[in-house]
Design a protein around this nucleic acid. Sequence first.
DNA 1: GCAAGGTC
Length: 615
Amino acid sequence: MKVIIAEKPSVAREIAKVFGATTKKDGYMEGKGYTFTWAFGHLLQLAPPQEYGFYGWNVQNLPMLPAKFKLSIRKVKTKDGIVEDPSVKKQLATIQALFDEATEIIVATDAGREGELIFRYIYYYLKCKKPFKRLWISSQTDEAIKEGFRNLKPGTDYDTLFNSAHCRSQSDWLVGMNATQALSLSSGTRAVLSLGRVQTPTLAMICSRYLENRNFVPELFYQVAIQPDKDGQVFKAVSVKNFKTKEEAQAILDLVEDVGSGFPQGGHILNVEAKPRKEPPPLLHDLSSLQQEANKRKGFTAEQTLNLLQGLYESKLVTYPRTGSRYIGDDVFAGVPALIDHFKAHADFGKQATLLSTAKLNKRSVNAKKVTDHHAILPTGEPAHQLMPDKQAIYDLVVGRMLEAFSQDCIKEVTKITVQSGSLFTASGTVIHTAGWRAVFNETDDEKKDEENATLPKVQAGENLPVIDKALLEKQTKPKPLYNEASLLKALETAGKEIDDEELRYAMKDSGLGTPATRAAMIETLLKRNYISREKKNLVPTETGLAVYHVVKHQQIAQAELTGNWEKRLEEIRGGASVADFQEEIKAYTRTITKELLQTGKSLVIKPTEKVLAK
DNA sequence: GCAAGGTC
């Protein structure tokens, strides 16, 4: 009997379907001489400190450097405290029984570093010795699965991938557990002051943005605006230059040849530039972009969106939610026309779906090379009945985005008029000619409406127009806004883009800080630690968060570069580089950071009850 | 009591 093990039930079911195996058992499926079972993500994790004899939180134990890491069953919080997750224990027993009977194991966990780790931890924990092969596919269509099975790889091909995964896991444990205890113990408070490779740089980003925002000194500047009149249609043009002083602006204002100053035709059109602009549709959603969109439109937190989306996934209404790719492969694309047809009768999107069903589809989101473990989020086309309003809202964002992504470009005309009236002024305006993908939600551009004219009259160079009004505008420079969940998620994705070192920047280019699956939980961790709080839609640090930030802000553990550095080394390990060298470096770093925090933590001061208020 | 990673 051959046993196929997937990362999660949904994938095992898909594979079983391709094999024509339909017999459902408790924790697995079978048929055609195969058995199909699954994990639920990581069933096993590196054992906590007490399992190596590091009892309690004690300076004497630090740094904790286990000679050999152990694995333990994933824990869950209950009213009786933290216990081994019973559903995990049960599934592990099922897997063990199947492995015992297996002649061969086929590993079908997700095609990536963590997928490899999920399987290997199970395999080693169960002390299994059976041979295994690896299924390596990046989409779960029937054809991709069949092709993958025709092309199974030797399990040992992925030994170095496992090494890199195991190193990642150990390093996070060593640095996180030790730094957390060191800071918590030395601070003298009884609070848990957690630190980690991902959470601490994130906290640092929130704190530094907050301080920058709070300490920002706005500068006044001045502009001059005029209102030329073309046959009764008035538009607004603004001085090309900004002025530091009111006097400079006043001098320009005085030069304006407006009607009131005795110039009946004092607005000279110097130039009219009308450029058509194609605006391609947005890419399909991955988890992060959907969380950002839902936060902007609905105010949902990253965690809420993930939970709602998980619910839709479990009801089989959307594809796998925790994806980091905004693309689909050609095989999935082949099914898109039929998928779009499902929404022809949809209340809001029916019109666009009908339009699309006969149109040429935009293939911007189709790129098999950019599909990683999972493709972008799509609706499945299963009928969605009577969803709760919040769930419906998320579902509509997924469906709407699908229709947008496969629609044609939006064609705009961007017009810029240059007017001379004493000095130079410009007016700009955008007219949409063909809505294209923008027809789906029927919304115009996001934010930058401030200075734009909705419509500009048709004017030609050489015309002279009356200027019927003029004004001196007083404006202020603005600070970068505080982070909210949407902008923070975006910043986490792109963290690393500003790293100076080219190699580190490259190593982080596909990852950012954290992963799509973990970012929502990480934000919740910072909230739970009372490091940050929500003030309206913004995320602002508390006194505790700022106090921790001040202690660690110059340390490596607070920099996104740390992840870049690790990713670079882990990639080398995957390519066959020495595991021991990296482990020694991590141990050395653990010793250093622990020692430093035991010292500097003493200077940490928290004003316990007081919360920082957002401006 | 603690990391980051995955999933129900």
